[in-house]
Design a binder for these strands. Structure first.
Length: 112
DNA sequence: TTTCTGACAACAA
DNA sequence: ATTGTTGCCAGAA
């Protein structure tokens, strides 16, 4: 494994690989890392991502497509702006057609 | 040191 | 269908 050993760091590695215009969920990442129940930890990793590399946390939403962490993007509609700028349609803090934009690391990175 | 919380998700009742 | 609890890891008080 070339990635960091910490669960936390693995999250960054996956999130960084999310292509523009795509989004993923905390659970998908957690499951890809081998701990489907650590979805909470993924969100916590995002919290620390501020002090880490440039992690596109705005592309990570909860299972419902809700921008749960938008409040952490500066307190404004920054997250919506970023997603909208990438072509992701967001309405009422929720991504529309989530499955259309959904990017599952366990599928895209299954070759690793 | 212990305890609690945290950007979630899945199961049980 | 809805509500409540549990699980996971790490950091802060």
């Amino acid at each position: 494994m070339s990635q960091e050993d910490s669960f936390f760091l693995k999250v960054y590695g996956v999130v960084k690989q999310i292509p523009e215009g795509k989004v993923t969920t905390y659970g998908a990442i957690a499951r890809y890392l081998g701990s489907p129940q650590s979805s909470r930890m993924v969100g916590w990793a995002m919290n620390a991502s501020h002090s880490n590399s440039e992690v596109p946390a705005h592309r990570v939403v909860n299972r419902k497509g809700l921008l749960t962490g938008k409040h952490h993007f500066g307190g404004g509609n920054i997250m919506e702006q970023l997603l909208g700028n990438e072509g992701v349609k967001v309405e009422q803090n929720q991504i529309q057609n989530l499955e259309h934009y959904f990017w599952d690391p366990s599928l895209e990175l299954s070759s690793f």
